[in-house]
Each structure stands twice: as structure tokens, then as C-alpha cells.
Simulated assay, not measured.
Amino acid sequence: MLINCVAYQEGKKLSDIPVEDISEYLKLPDTFVWVALRDPDQAEIATMQEEFALHELAVEDAVRGHQRPKMEEYGDCVFVTLQILEFAGDELNSGELAVFAGPNYVLSVRRDANQGFLGVRARAEREPHQLKKGSGFVLYALADAVVDRYFPVVDRLEAELESIEDHIFGKVGEQRANIERLYALKRKSQTMRHAVIPLLDAVGRLYGGRVPPVVSETQDYFRDVHDHLLRIAGRLDAVRDTINTAIQVSLSMVAIEENDISKKLASYAAIFAVFTAFAGVWGMNFEFMPELKWRYGYPVALATMASVCGYMYWRFKKAGWI
């Protein structure tokens, strides 16, 4: 679906243009065309390929989707893919943004993501002195918007981790739920790492040293994006390490509680074993057992059993087994 198709000259918007006129505007001096698509079909992609003379391999990646973040050069065109992360309830969903940036055009293809980039276009149009830098600045603005949206995601992951940590030393019945929440959080953090870590390398190739001509005037901006990614990657590493530690602590708490339960069961089993032993001896009913004909034999037997069991209970209680 076509979102926008706009021509700019000298950093200022000329007009919205029909798709079939794109090739004509590309011939104008100091002019570039910015087209945004969302979940396009094959026919729309084919039209854009023809209008912008896009490389077939880059088009194939944009059509298929599900690409890892990367940056590739095809002649004078830079092809960049980024993952868009957004929460839907408690689930972290991953979409994709593919950007073709040539000397006088930018084509962005968004898939499987609800959040748009109209704000990016509005921001760029408010800064004509920046927009004069052409497609390189638009590529930066799109990448910067995607990366800035990572910060609320990692904030939420950290907040969720803190919430789980507050319950790690809680009741025993909560440990299983805590471990399940930790593994779910670990899966979300891995999803985010898959979006951030490869993008570090891709953005790192857009500043310093030899860079594509398209971004030659915007290297400093891409260095800023790279710095943001480094900050996010560091926070993700901290989240991952904390999750692993929390999982180990939770498992240890479960093991400790199981050991305490085993101690309690062993203690009560030992106490009842005393009853069994005494009852077994006095229940044999031999003819010459003196206790059988003694008037106080039965009360003494019960008192002895109760006294021994009481003593054992006291010892186990003192030892912390009960």
C-alpha cells in the first residue's frame, strides 16, 4: 500500500506526485523523491523497481522480508534493513523496514509493523537545511527513529525484570511462575538482541573510513545512531546477565525449599518410627513379659513413647528441621 510519494527540491517539498511520474522528477536537478510503502504487493514492488532501477537482489530481500539487519551496496544505491520492535500486550513483535537510498531517491518498505514514520517525514520537512543533504539524511532520520523506539522497549524489559526480582525470595509457590516469567523475558531480550547487534555492524559501515557516497554528508549523524545502539546493547547485556543470575537463584531457592521439605518429612518419619518401635515390642504378647500383668504398664508405655517422641521433636525443632 502506498503511504506517500513526494518530490523535494533544495530541501523543500515540491508536491505529492503520482507514481508514474517518479522517473520524470528524478531527472530534475537538486531533486529527490521519497516514497513510503506499507506491506506492498508484488505489483507495487515491481513498479518501484522499474521507476528507480533497483537491483533485483535487493528487491528480492524486500519482497521476502524476514531479513536480519544489514547494509548492502548495489552500485550507487544503499540498501538497509532494520527490525521494528513493538509490544502487543505482553508480546514483543518484530516488524521490518527496508530502505533503498539512491542519489536522488529514498524508498522505504514497512512490513508487519503498526507504527508508521509520518512523524519522521514531518520532522525532515521542518528542517529544510538538513533535507537539502538528500537521501542520506532521510536514511539517517528513518534509522534514528527505529533506534529511538528501542529505548522504551528496553526500559520495559528492565522494569519487568525488576518486578520479577522483587518476588524471587517470595513464597515457594511463586518460584515456578517466576522462572516461567524469566524465560519469557529472556526470549524477548533475545528478540531485541537479534535486532540490535547486527545493526551495530551495518550502521558502523556508514561512518568513518570509506562510506557510500549517498551518506558522505551525514556520517556524523550515523555515528550518533551507532552510539545509541551501543548503549542499548550494553543494557541488553546487563539484562541478559541479570536474567541468568535470577534463574539460577530461583532454581536454588526451589532446591533449598525441597531440601527443607525433605528434612521435615524425615523428622516426622523418625518420630513416628519411635511409636512403631515401642508398639512393636510391647505388642508381641509373649507370656512372660512383665509389663503385661503390671497395673501401670500401659500408662508407663504410653508416657515413655510420648516422652521420647517429644524429646525428638524438640531436638529437630532446635536444629531447624521442623
Rank of each mutant, 00 (worst) to 15 (best):
V274F: 13
L97Y: 00
E73P: 00
V35I: 10
L251E: 14
F32S: 04
A58G: 15
S216H: 11
F288L: 09
D201M: 01
P198V: 09
A277G: 05
M305F: 04
T31K: 03
I271A: 04
A124C: 15
E91L: 06
L2G: 02
V120Q: 03
G283Y: 11
L2V: 13
M253I: 09
A255K: 03
K27Y: 10
A269W: 09
D148P: 05
E60G: 04
E72G: 08
N4Q: 13
D260H: 14
M48K: 00
A43I: 12
I243K: 02
R205N: 12
G310L: 02
F222T: 07
L251P: 03
V106W: 06
E258F: 09
M192D: 06
A195M: 12
F79Y: 14
L251R: 10
V154F: 11
I261R: 14
I45N: 01
V35S: 02
S108W: 03
R123S: 13
G116H: 01
E44C: 02
E86M: 05
L54V: 03
S307W: 13
Q83A: 11
A46L: 02
V214C: 07
Q175K: 08
D155L: 10
K13L: 14
L142A: 01
A238K: 04
W314I: 03
E44F: 04
Y268G: 01
R110G: 04
V215E: 05
V281P: 03
M1K: 08
A269L: 06
N178F: 07
R176D: 11
L37C: 04
V239M: 02
A266N: 14
D90P: 04
E287P: 02
K70M: 11
F272A: 06
Q49S: 15
R111H: 12
T245N: 13
Q42G: 06
L2E: 07
V138D: 00
Y311M: 14
L139K: 01
E162T: 11
R38C: 08
G89R: 03
H194E: 12
I84E: 06
Q219R: 15
L14T: 08
D260G: 00
M312Q: 07
R231N: 11
S135Q: 01
L26K: 07
K13Y: 09
V214K: 03
L85R: 01
E56F: 09
L230C: 11
G283C: 10
Y207I: 06
L236S: 04
E91P: 01
D21E: 15
V63L: 13
F32N: 03
R64H: 14
E158A: 13
A62D: 06
T245E: 09
K264H: 10
K27G: 07
V225G: 00
Y296H: 10
D227E: 14
L37W: 00
S307T: 15
S189K: 06
R156A: 10
A301Y: 05
F52P: 01
F137E: 05
E50N: 13
R187K: 14
D148F: 08
G95L: 08
E24N: 10
A269D: 07
M253K: 08
P152H: 06
S15P: 00
V308F: 12
G75K: 07
M312K: 01
G116P: 00
K12D: 10
G204S: 05
Y105L: 05
E20R: 09
P18D: 12
D224W: 03
E60L: 04
R176W: 13
V146Q: 00
A88Q: 09
A238P: 01
T245Y: 12
L251I: 14
L118I: 10
S262I: 15
H167E: 14
A269E: 10
D16P: 04
E72S: 12
I168W: 06
